[in-house]
Amino acid sequence: MNVNDARILLNVHQLVARYGDRTILNGVDLQVRAGEVRVILGGSGCGKSTLLRHCIGLNDPAGGEVEILGQRLDRLDVKDRNALLERIGVLFQNGALLGSLPIGQNVALPLVEHTTLPEEVIHEMVRLKLAAVEMTHAEYLLPSELSGGMRKRAALARAIALDPELLFCDEPSAGLDPLTSAELDALILRLRDRFGMGIVVVTHELSSIETIADKVIFLSQGKVLADGTLNEVKKTDHPEIQAFFSRRAAGEMRGEKSALEVLT
């Protein structure tokens, strides 16, 4: 099956987001299909995280709509909303594991709260998920006893606890060494291939983008600058995108003068 025929899991249409008077996103479109890794790119403060927060219903849109798995989160009542949230998984930037619970219980939390599965089955499921991220040894450890990379892997296990159809990852490689970051990338690809999940990744790590991105969306100042496959986006003739991929300072691309040029 061609990826372009796959089911649309996430459909963001003309999203407008505001914090107080500041407009963070201004008419953003984004579509994510099953079985693809969609990377949201952009410099710091371009609205990447805001877009993510709107996608998972932590913020309600000021305009436009966000449709997850065919439903609009902001139009649902609490019960339906929670039922819909069970079908998505989120990996937060620092894992956001509950500090008071051991890893195993963290992973079990969504299962305990949202299912009526017997305890033994839940325990077995937790082990399966932990094995999927190669973290079985940490089942009884507290999050504070783990390194940053391990914490993220454990958080990923929790995110996939309920076999979500759509997975969101906020800066999975931030603050990780290249090796751990690469392992996490491989893990994300494995999830896509094995479970056919739609995966949305917010990142600005170039090496990571090259590995995982099926399609890319480039944000700048609350607008979509480019949308397409990585190669298409790379070819876009826009100074900021070019600066991003050639790792040059944005100021240089904007043609700001150096002190030397001004003074001579």
Binding site: R53, I56, G57, L58, V78, R81, N82, A83, L85, E86, I88, V90, F92, Q93, N94, A96, L97, L98, G99, L109, P110, E113, H114
Partner: peptide
């Protein structure tokens, strides 16, 4: 406050836990 700062509250919310 610590949970809020470390996004644990957000994590709970998106897990469907109020």
């Amino acid at each position: 406050a610590t949970m809020k700062v470390s996004e644990e509250l957000d994590a709970l919310t998106v897990m469907g836990l109020d």
